[in-house]
Simulated scan of single mutants.
Amino acid sequence: MKRRLEGKVAIVTGGGSGIGEAISKKFAAEGASVVVCGLPSDPVRKVVDEIQASGGKAIGYLGDVSIEDSAEACVQLALDDFGKLDILINNAGVFPATAELDKYPVEAFEYMIKNNIYTAFMMSRAALPHLQKTKGNIVSAGSEAGQMGSPMITPYGGTKAWVMTFSRGLAVEQAKHGVRVNCVGPGPIDTAWTHKETGPMDSKMEKNTVNGVPLGRRGTPEEVANVYLFLASDEASYVTGATYFVDGGVTLSKSLSGEEVPAHLKQQPAGDLHLNHGKEGHAKIRKEATGTMTV
């Protein structure tokens, strides 16, 4: 049976850890040639090596794609090595702090504007001329927090609402060029962001985050990657301007309904991908990704 992305070329930003690692490996397993994009401190090289060891095609790009020159260089690498571009996955994002707004660090807010918003803008802008040639598509990372808002991470939800609205506008704008644009809205996923040991949540927030999921557990990065795969594939040829929530029902929940789920139903599915970098996500401010977005 033909693999769903056979012959396609994809860029995955934030592709070295967490959900991005899963997307990169899922796309490669489905036949895509993948540019795994990340910061120099991300395990991009490891993910590329792991894809290649499994028989997939992948190269790495290290750079800050919130900056115009770096975004254009990432797209050019895909063209130079693979000859075209069919899919852009705007997965790069950061989750550096939790606090009530009057105590929320201004530095963390600026950091999210740079790494959640500018990255999606710059990469989409650089990729569009080439996606128009291939009648390709963009899938960007929204969030259930961008749909509902979420206390203690109010600015984060605001950045994700921007991405989701940006994607809807871009979908209508680019339809005449044959380019589809969609979003995936993850809920609490089993990455660095949702564990107190590796992210900014304290124990109370971590517990409430999981118990607020009607399915009673965190999702896996692979479960999110499965939805990215559908939206990026030709199977979604009539889908544009949509946000698909992969949230275990969080956007519909009004209570800590996860507490009622029996233990045997809270078990995560085993999955098929070998994911080794799930807890290496961008959950704190890194010096390499600070600074201005334009030169």
Rank of each mutant, 00 (worst) to 15 (best):
T194W: 09
V210G: 05
G146L: 08
T240E: 08
E206C: 01
P262I: 09
L5P: 04
K26I: 06
S233Q: 04
R4S: 09
A73Q: 13
F109D: 03
I11C: 02
L85H: 10
Y104A: 06
N116R: 01
D80S: 14
F109E: 08
A10I: 00
L231P: 05
G199F: 09
A99E: 14
L131Y: 10
V9W: 11
E72A: 13
K287T: 13
E107R: 10
H282R: 12
V227H: 09
D69S: 15
D86Q: 02
D80M: 05
H264T: 11
C74L: 10
T194Q: 09
T240A: 02
N137W: 12
G158F: 11
V246P: 02
K204F: 03
G249A: 04
G83E: 12
A171L: 00
L101Q: 03
L77W: 01
I89P: 01
E144T: 14
G56L: 08
R217T: 04
A120H: 02
M148E: 05
S24H: 08
M164H: 06
L131M: 10
R4N: 00
K2C: 07
I138E: 10
K279P: 00
I23T: 06
K160D: 07
G271Y: 03
T119I: 06
G157M: 09
S41D: 13
G15N: 06
A161Q: 10
V227F: 12
E197P: 02
V227L: 15
G185I: 00
G60P: 04
A145M: 13
N182D: 13
G20M: 04
T159W: 11
V184T: 07
V47P: 10
V213K: 02
N276I: 00
M201R: 06
A283Y: 05
N91S: 04
G199R: 02
D234A: 10
N182I: 01
V47H: 09
I113G: 03
E107K: 13
E173Y: 05
A270I: 14
K196A: 15
N182G: 03
Q76D: 14
K204M: 09
